[in-house]
Protein backbone atom coordinates (compact mmCIF):
# COMPACT_ATOMS: atom_id res chain seq x y z
CA UNK A 1 0.00 0.00 0.00
CA UNK A 2 1.33 3.42 -0.90
CA UNK A 3 1.97 5.68 2.01
CA UNK A 4 -0.36 8.68 1.61
CA UNK A 5 2.07 11.08 3.24
CA UNK A 6 4.85 9.97 0.90
CA UNK A 7 2.54 10.26 -2.09
CA UNK A 8 1.50 13.76 -1.11
CA UNK A 9 5.14 14.70 -0.63
CA UNK A 10 5.99 13.33 -4.07
CA UNK A 11 3.11 15.30 -5.56
CA UNK A 12 4.34 18.41 -3.82
CA UNK A 13 7.85 17.95 -5.19
CA UNK A 14 6.41 17.34 -8.64
CA UNK A 15 4.06 20.33 -8.61
CA UNK A 16 6.79 22.54 -7.15
CA UNK A 17 9.09 21.37 -9.93
CA UNK A 18 6.51 22.04 -12.63
CA UNK A 19 5.96 25.55 -11.33
CA UNK A 20 9.71 26.18 -11.08
CA UNK A 21 9.90 24.93 -14.65
CA UNK A 22 7.46 27.63 -15.76
CA UNK A 23 9.85 30.19 -14.31
CA UNK A 24 12.68 28.68 -16.38
CA UNK A 25 10.49 28.78 -19.46
CA UNK A 26 9.97 32.51 -18.98
CA UNK A 27 13.71 33.03 -19.32
CA UNK A 28 14.02 30.54 -22.18
CA UNK A 29 11.31 32.33 -24.21
CA UNK A 30 13.62 35.26 -24.90
CA UNK A 31 16.21 32.93 -26.38
CA UNK A 32 13.66 31.33 -28.68
CA UNK A 33 12.41 34.66 -30.01
CA UNK A 34 15.85 35.77 -31.07
CA UNK A 35 16.88 32.37 -32.37
CA UNK A 36 13.77 32.18 -34.51
CA UNK A 37 14.49 35.53 -36.07
CA UNK A 38 18.19 35.31 -36.63
CA UNK A 39 19.49 31.81 -35.89
CA UNK A 40 21.51 33.43 -33.16
CA UNK A 41 21.90 31.91 -29.77
CA UNK A 42 21.68 35.08 -27.72
CA UNK A 43 24.25 34.76 -24.96
CA UNK A 44 23.16 38.12 -23.62
CA UNK A 45 19.63 37.01 -22.69
CA UNK A 46 20.53 36.40 -19.01
CA UNK A 47 22.20 39.78 -18.86
CA UNK A 48 19.13 41.35 -20.49
CA UNK A 49 16.92 39.87 -17.76
CA UNK A 50 19.19 41.44 -15.15
CA UNK A 51 19.47 44.77 -16.96
CA UNK A 52 15.72 45.03 -17.53
CA UNK A 53 14.58 44.36 -13.99
CA UNK A 54 17.43 46.39 -12.51
CA UNK A 55 16.29 49.35 -14.60
CA UNK A 56 12.70 48.74 -13.51
CA UNK A 57 13.52 48.92 -9.79
CA UNK A 58 15.90 51.78 -10.54
CA UNK A 59 13.05 53.82 -12.04
CA UNK A 60 10.85 52.95 -9.08
CA UNK A 61 13.60 54.19 -6.76
CA UNK A 62 13.62 57.45 -8.69
CA UNK A 63 10.02 57.88 -7.56
CA UNK A 64 8.03 56.50 -10.47
CA UNK A 65 4.92 54.51 -9.54
CA UNK A 66 4.79 50.82 -10.46
CA UNK A 67 2.99 51.10 -13.79
CA UNK A 68 4.92 54.14 -14.92
CA UNK A 69 8.20 52.39 -14.10
CA UNK A 70 6.99 49.34 -16.00
CA UNK A 71 6.08 51.35 -19.08
CA UNK A 72 9.30 53.35 -19.00
CA UNK A 73 11.30 50.13 -18.72
CA UNK A 74 9.35 48.58 -21.61
CA UNK A 75 10.21 51.69 -23.63
CA UNK A 76 13.83 51.39 -22.53
CA UNK A 77 14.02 47.73 -23.54
CA UNK A 78 12.49 48.57 -26.93
CA UNK A 79 15.13 51.27 -27.31
CA UNK A 80 17.84 48.83 -26.26
CA UNK A 81 16.57 46.32 -28.82
CA UNK A 82 16.58 48.94 -31.56
CA UNK A 83 20.03 50.17 -30.59
CA UNK A 84 21.35 46.63 -30.58
CA UNK A 85 20.02 46.13 -34.07
CA UNK A 86 21.45 49.42 -35.30
CA UNK A 87 24.88 49.19 -33.69
CA UNK A 88 25.57 45.48 -33.69
CA UNK A 89 23.33 43.34 -35.88
CA UNK A 90 23.04 45.65 -38.87
CA UNK A 91 26.80 45.55 -39.22
CA UNK A 92 26.75 41.77 -39.26
CA UNK A 93 24.07 40.97 -41.84
CA UNK A 94 25.03 37.86 -43.80
CA UNK A 95 27.89 37.08 -41.50
CA UNK A 96 28.22 33.58 -40.12
CA UNK A 97 26.17 32.41 -37.14
CA UNK A 98 29.36 32.17 -35.11
CA UNK A 99 30.10 35.84 -35.67
CA UNK A 100 26.66 36.78 -34.39
CA UNK A 101 27.09 34.45 -31.41
CA UNK A 102 30.37 36.13 -30.49
CA UNK A 103 28.69 39.51 -30.79
CA UNK A 104 26.06 38.45 -28.26
CA UNK A 105 28.76 37.34 -25.82
CA UNK A 106 30.15 40.85 -26.06
CA UNK A 107 26.66 42.28 -25.61
CA UNK A 108 26.27 40.31 -22.37
CA UNK A 109 29.26 42.10 -20.90
CA UNK A 110 27.89 45.44 -22.09
CA UNK A 111 24.49 44.84 -20.43
CA UNK A 112 26.03 43.56 -17.18
CA UNK A 113 28.46 46.43 -16.97
CA UNK A 114 26.02 49.11 -18.04
CA UNK A 115 23.38 47.96 -15.58
CA UNK A 116 25.78 48.06 -12.67
CA UNK A 117 27.31 51.32 -13.82
CA UNK A 118 23.99 53.13 -14.08
CA UNK A 119 22.10 51.63 -11.17
CA UNK A 120 24.89 50.50 -8.84
CA UNK A 121 25.72 47.06 -7.50
CA UNK A 122 23.41 47.04 -4.49
CA UNK A 123 20.89 44.27 -4.14
CA UNK A 124 17.31 45.52 -4.32
CA UNK A 125 14.05 44.15 -3.12
CA UNK A 126 11.14 43.97 -5.54
CA UNK A 127 7.63 43.70 -4.15
CA UNK A 128 5.00 42.84 -6.74
CA UNK A 129 2.33 42.53 -4.10
CA UNK A 130 2.18 38.76 -4.65
CA UNK A 131 3.40 36.99 -1.52
CA UNK A 132 5.85 34.12 -2.00
CA UNK A 133 4.24 32.08 0.76
CA UNK A 134 2.09 28.95 0.67
CA UNK A 135 -1.54 29.41 -0.36
CA UNK A 136 -3.60 28.87 2.78
CA UNK A 137 -6.51 27.08 1.12
CA UNK A 138 -4.22 24.63 -0.68
CA UNK A 139 -2.36 24.02 2.55
CA UNK A 140 -5.57 23.48 4.49
CA UNK A 141 -7.20 21.17 1.99
CA UNK A 142 -4.22 19.11 0.84
CA UNK A 143 -1.37 19.84 3.25
CA UNK A 144 0.78 20.86 0.27
CA UNK A 145 2.87 24.01 0.10
CA UNK A 146 2.16 25.81 -3.16
CA UNK A 147 3.28 29.42 -3.46
CA UNK A 148 1.03 32.17 -4.76
CA UNK A 149 3.96 33.64 -6.69
CA UNK A 150 4.49 30.36 -8.51
CA UNK A 151 0.86 30.23 -9.55
CA UNK A 152 1.09 33.83 -10.77
CA UNK A 153 4.21 32.98 -12.77
CA UNK A 154 2.29 30.17 -14.39
CA UNK A 155 -0.50 32.54 -15.40
CA UNK A 156 1.95 35.13 -16.71
CA UNK A 157 3.78 32.49 -18.74
CA UNK A 158 0.50 31.22 -20.20
CA UNK A 159 -0.51 34.74 -21.26
CA UNK A 160 2.87 35.46 -22.79
CA UNK A 161 2.97 32.21 -24.72
CA UNK A 162 -0.51 32.82 -26.12
CA UNK A 163 0.40 36.33 -27.23
CA UNK A 164 3.66 35.19 -28.79
CA UNK A 165 1.99 32.24 -30.51
CA UNK A 166 -0.54 34.62 -32.09
CA UNK A 167 2.26 36.99 -33.05
CA UNK A 168 4.14 34.25 -34.85
CA UNK A 169 1.30 32.47 -36.57
CA UNK A 170 -1.34 35.11 -37.31
CA UNK A 171 0.56 38.28 -38.17
CA UNK A 172 2.70 39.49 -41.03
CA UNK A 173 5.52 40.08 -38.61
CA UNK A 174 5.45 36.41 -37.69
CA UNK A 175 5.52 35.36 -41.32
CA UNK A 176 8.38 37.72 -42.05
CA UNK A 177 10.18 36.47 -39.02
CA UNK A 178 10.00 32.89 -40.17
CA UNK A 179 11.28 33.90 -43.59
CA UNK A 180 14.20 35.78 -42.05
CA UNK A 181 15.02 32.73 -39.96
CA UNK A 182 15.38 30.64 -43.10
CA UNK A 183 17.94 32.94 -44.66
CA UNK A 184 18.82 36.60 -44.43
CA UNK A 185 19.66 37.10 -48.06
CA UNK A 186 16.66 35.18 -49.37
CA UNK A 187 14.28 37.09 -47.12
CA UNK A 188 15.72 40.44 -48.14
CA UNK A 189 15.54 39.51 -51.83
CA UNK A 190 11.78 39.08 -51.62
CA UNK A 191 11.36 42.39 -49.88
CA UNK A 192 11.08 41.40 -46.23
CA UNK A 193 12.41 44.24 -44.10
CA UNK A 194 15.08 42.32 -42.22
CA UNK A 195 16.14 45.27 -40.12
CA UNK A 196 12.65 46.06 -38.86
CA UNK A 197 12.01 42.40 -38.11
CA UNK A 198 15.20 42.19 -36.08
CA UNK A 199 14.35 45.39 -34.29
CA UNK A 200 10.90 44.10 -33.35
CA UNK A 201 12.23 40.75 -32.19
CA UNK A 202 15.00 42.21 -30.04
CA UNK A 203 12.57 44.65 -28.50
CA UNK A 204 10.09 41.83 -27.79
CA UNK A 205 12.90 39.73 -26.27
CA UNK A 206 13.74 42.71 -24.09
CA UNK A 207 10.16 42.94 -22.82
CA UNK A 208 10.06 39.17 -22.23
CA UNK A 209 13.32 39.55 -20.30
CA UNK A 210 11.72 42.27 -18.17
CA UNK A 211 8.73 40.07 -17.29
CA UNK A 212 10.99 37.09 -16.47
CA UNK A 213 13.24 39.35 -14.42
CA UNK A 214 10.28 40.73 -12.48
CA UNK A 215 9.02 37.28 -11.53
CA UNK A 216 12.50 36.11 -10.49
CA UNK A 217 13.39 39.42 -8.89
CA UNK A 218 10.25 39.28 -6.75
CA UNK A 219 11.42 35.96 -5.34
CA UNK A 220 15.19 36.41 -5.15
CA UNK A 221 15.76 40.13 -5.03
CA UNK A 222 17.08 42.12 -7.95
CA UNK A 223 20.74 41.27 -8.15
CA UNK A 224 23.56 40.15 -10.36
CA UNK A 225 22.88 36.45 -9.81
CA UNK A 226 19.87 36.82 -12.13
CA UNK A 227 22.39 36.73 -14.98
CA UNK A 228 22.89 33.06 -14.20
CA UNK A 229 19.27 32.24 -14.85
CA UNK A 230 20.43 31.60 -18.40
CA UNK A 231 22.12 28.47 -17.06
CA UNK A 232 18.70 27.12 -16.18
CA UNK A 233 17.27 28.09 -19.58
CA UNK A 234 19.87 26.36 -21.75
CA UNK A 235 18.84 22.75 -21.11
CA UNK A 236 15.22 23.85 -21.53
CA UNK A 237 16.10 25.16 -24.99
CA UNK A 238 17.97 22.04 -26.04
CA UNK A 239 15.12 19.82 -24.94
CA UNK A 240 12.29 22.01 -26.21
CA UNK A 241 13.93 22.99 -29.45
CA UNK A 242 15.39 26.38 -30.20
CA UNK A 243 12.57 27.45 -32.47
CA UNK A 244 9.46 26.38 -30.63
CA UNK A 245 7.55 28.57 -28.20
CA UNK A 246 5.31 25.74 -26.94
CA UNK A 247 8.44 23.56 -26.86
CA UNK A 248 10.16 25.67 -24.22
CA UNK A 249 7.07 25.56 -22.06
CA UNK A 250 6.81 21.78 -22.21
CA UNK A 251 10.57 21.43 -21.78
CA UNK A 252 10.57 23.90 -18.89
CA UNK A 253 7.94 21.82 -17.11
CA UNK A 254 9.95 18.66 -17.77
CA UNK A 255 13.23 20.15 -16.59
CA UNK A 256 11.67 21.61 -13.46
CA UNK A 257 9.88 18.40 -12.53
CA UNK A 258 12.77 16.07 -13.28
CA UNK A 259 15.42 18.15 -11.53
CA UNK A 260 13.37 18.45 -8.35
CA UNK A 261 12.38 14.80 -8.27
CA UNK A 262 16.00 13.80 -9.01
CA UNK A 263 17.37 16.10 -6.30
CA UNK A 264 15.02 14.83 -3.63
CA UNK A 265 15.07 11.12 -4.45
CA UNK A 266 18.44 10.49 -6.13
CA UNK A 267 20.43 13.49 -4.89
CA UNK A 268 21.29 12.11 -1.45
CA UNK A 269 23.09 9.16 -3.09
CA UNK A 270 25.44 11.66 -4.78
CA UNK A 271 25.93 13.88 -1.75
CA UNK A 272 23.19 16.23 -2.92
CA UNK A 273 23.34 19.25 -5.20
CA UNK A 274 22.65 17.30 -8.40
CA UNK A 275 19.93 19.57 -9.76
CA UNK A 276 22.60 21.82 -11.21
CA UNK A 277 23.70 19.18 -13.68
CA UNK A 278 20.76 16.78 -13.89
CA UNK A 279 18.97 18.89 -16.57
CA UNK A 280 22.17 18.98 -18.62
CA UNK A 281 22.38 15.18 -18.49
CA UNK A 282 18.84 15.13 -19.78
CA UNK A 283 19.80 17.59 -22.52
CA UNK A 284 22.72 15.37 -23.57
CA UNK A 285 20.35 12.42 -23.94
CA UNK A 286 18.09 14.56 -26.11
CA UNK A 287 21.02 15.68 -28.24
CA UNK A 288 21.84 12.04 -28.88
CA UNK A 289 18.37 10.92 -29.88
CA UNK A 290 16.50 14.05 -30.91
CA UNK A 291 18.96 16.87 -31.56
CA UNK A 292 16.29 19.26 -32.80
CA UNK A 293 14.49 19.01 -29.46
CA UNK A 294 10.88 18.07 -28.78
CA UNK A 295 9.25 20.58 -31.09
CA UNK A 296 12.19 22.06 -32.96
CA UNK A 297 12.39 22.16 -36.72
CA UNK A 298 14.30 19.28 -38.21
CA UNK A 299 17.15 20.82 -40.15
CA UNK A 300 17.66 19.39 -43.61
CA UNK A 301 20.68 20.66 -45.45
CA UNK A 302 21.81 19.90 -48.94
CA UNK A 303 25.49 19.15 -49.16
Amino acid sequence: MIDTVELLFFLEVLIGGLLAGVMYSLVALGFVLIYKASRVFNFAQGAMVFFAVLSFVGFMELGLPFWAAFLVTVALMILVGMTTERLVLRQLVNQSDQTLLMATIGLAFVFEGMGQLIWGVEVRRLDLGIPDVPLEWVLDSTGMFISALDISAGVVAAVMVTVLAILFSKTKIGLGLRAVADGHAAAMSIGIPLKSIWMIVWATAGVVALVAGMMWGARNGVQFALVWLALKAWPVLIIGGFTSVPGVIVAGLMVGAIEKVAEVYIGPAFGGGIEGWAPYMMAVVFLMFRPEGLFGERMIRRV
Binding site: F9, G267, G272, G273
Partner: peptide, 21 residues
Protein backbone atom coordinates in the same frame (compact mmCIF):
# COMPACT_ATOMS: atom_id res chain seq x y z
CA UNK B 1 21.71 16.09 8.06
CA UNK B 2 23.86 17.63 5.31
CA UNK B 3 22.13 19.13 2.28
CA UNK B 4 24.06 20.74 -0.57
CA UNK B 5 22.86 23.46 -2.96
CA UNK B 6 24.55 23.82 -6.33
CA UNK B 7 25.72 27.35 -7.19
CA UNK B 8 24.23 29.90 -7.84
CA UNK B 9 21.38 28.65 -5.65
CA UNK B 10 18.54 30.84 -6.91
CA UNK B 11 16.33 27.74 -6.86
CA UNK B 12 16.27 25.95 -3.51
CA UNK B 13 12.87 24.37 -3.61
CA UNK B 14 13.95 20.75 -3.53
CA UNK B 15 16.37 21.42 -0.64
CA UNK B 16 13.69 23.13 1.39
CA UNK B 17 11.16 20.43 0.68
CA UNK B 18 13.72 17.96 2.01
CA UNK B 19 14.18 20.16 5.06
CA UNK B 20 10.45 20.24 5.60
CA UNK B 21 10.34 16.47 5.42
Amino acid sequence: VEIAIPSPGLEQQSQWLQIRR
